[in-house]
């Protein structure tokens, strides 16, 4: 594609002319694309707007995409421009090859490049840290003693003013425990809308990862570890739950649909669960941050299983079964 006319023309152009042309194309494209990314693509970016954390992650995604767009555009425009204008036939015989201008570098350009990338990187770091901080871990599992916690958080789950849900992963299903409701365990997840929820994620065997996709929550479930994630202000609707860490044969089958309900519906649901599982409650181990089964063979020692106290005040429970012991003091009911 030896367009002789074009190449002659480009010879006449100075460095500054080329830069100006590239800059102009880039500027036009940037001015078109960045608003498109922010205003058209942004609102559709995952994980959606179903909770405060999800909204902030979406905003973060949008910001990063908006920052990335000019970078991508610049490299594309530049390479496209260079290849179009400064190309010689690929099959030019070796003897006829001419050398390009012996440019070994450009101090100003290099300095500008380094400064721009460094500033961008540090800006992104500050932005990311700020999001992580103000969103209390931004929906991620923040370990057993999170540094940034919402008001009402307590290291003791039962004293927490937040709704605490213990998420228990096991090959291959999720179960959920509500310590503030007598430690009742359920096989589906329902949480009230508009509240701040604390997920205590743990595992009974291998590593799983609790991913509530549209709530913007992801926390690894490790055996013997309590991984805490917060979600604020979920809105009513279904919650897609998947396992995001390879956990064995039926890893892909650890998918579930939970539900965010209005407070009244949630209260009715949890009361129903307590009734449904009332007979089982004494068999469950006392609530703890994580389950540690006994060592020999990997099972609980029955003699150490303490029945959880059922916090009633809710529908009349059936008569309590026989085994009972010094149960932990009743927890305040979340209201």
């Amino acid at each position: 594609m030896a367009d002789t006319k074009a190449s002659e023309e480009s010879k006449e152009l100075t460095d500054r002319d080329h830069l100006r042309r590239i800059g102009l194309i880039w500027l036009v494209l940037t001015l078109v694309c960045v608003p498109l990314v922010i205003f058209v693509l942004g609102p559709h970016l995952p994980p959606g707007t179903d909770s405060e954390q999800a909204r902030n992650q979406q905003e973060d995604n949008t910001v990063l995409a908006a920052v990335a767009t000019p970078v991508l555009l610049f490299i594309w425009v530049y390479i496209g421009y260079a290849v179009k204008n400064w190309r010689i036939p690929a099959d030019t015989p070796v003897e006829e090859l001419q050398d390009g201008p012996p440019i070994r570098g450009h101090r100003g350009f290099q300095t500008a490049w380094i400064v721009i990338t460094s500033v961008t990187v540090f800006a992104l770091f500050v932005f990311g840290t700020q999001e992580l901080w103000t969103d209390y871990g931004s929906g991620t599992g923040s370990g057993s003693s999170p540094v940034w916690t919402p008001a009402g958080y307590s290291t003791n789950a039962k004293d927490s003013k937040l709704l605490v849900v213990q998420v228990i992963g096991q090959q291959w299903r999720w179960t959920y425990r509500f310590p503030q409701y007598g430690g009742v365990e359920t096989d589906t997840l329902v949480i009230p809308a508009g509240k701040t929820v604390q997920f205590d994620v743990t595992s009974l065997d291998v590593i799983h990862s609790f991913w509530a996709i549209n709530l913007g929550v992801k926390a690894d479930a490790n055996p013997g570890n309590n991984n805490i994630a917060f979600v604020e202000d979920p809105s009513v609707g279904p919650v897609d739950i998947r396992c995001a860490e390879l956990c064995g044969t039926y890893h892909g089958a650890m998918a579930q649909t939970g539900q965010v309900e209005k407070q009244a519906d949630f209260d009715a649901w949890i009361a129903g669960q307590i009734v449904l599982h009332y007979d089982l409650l004494p068999q469950l181990p006392a609530y703890a941050d994580f389950y540690i089964p006994q060592t020999d063979g990997g099972y609980y020692d029955p003699s150490q299983v303490t029945p959880p106290a059922v916090d009633s005040g809710l529908p009349p429970p059936p008569p309590a079964p026989a085994p009972s012991s010094a149960a932990p003091s009743p927890a305040p009911s979340s209201s």
């Binding site: 096991q170 009974l204 065997d205 599982h277 089982l280 068999q283 609980y300």
Partner: peptide, 13 residues
Amino acid sequence: GSPLRNPFMNQTA
């Protein structure tokens, strides 16, 4: 038999 890892599965459903 043996105990279960999670006694929640002690019940039918």
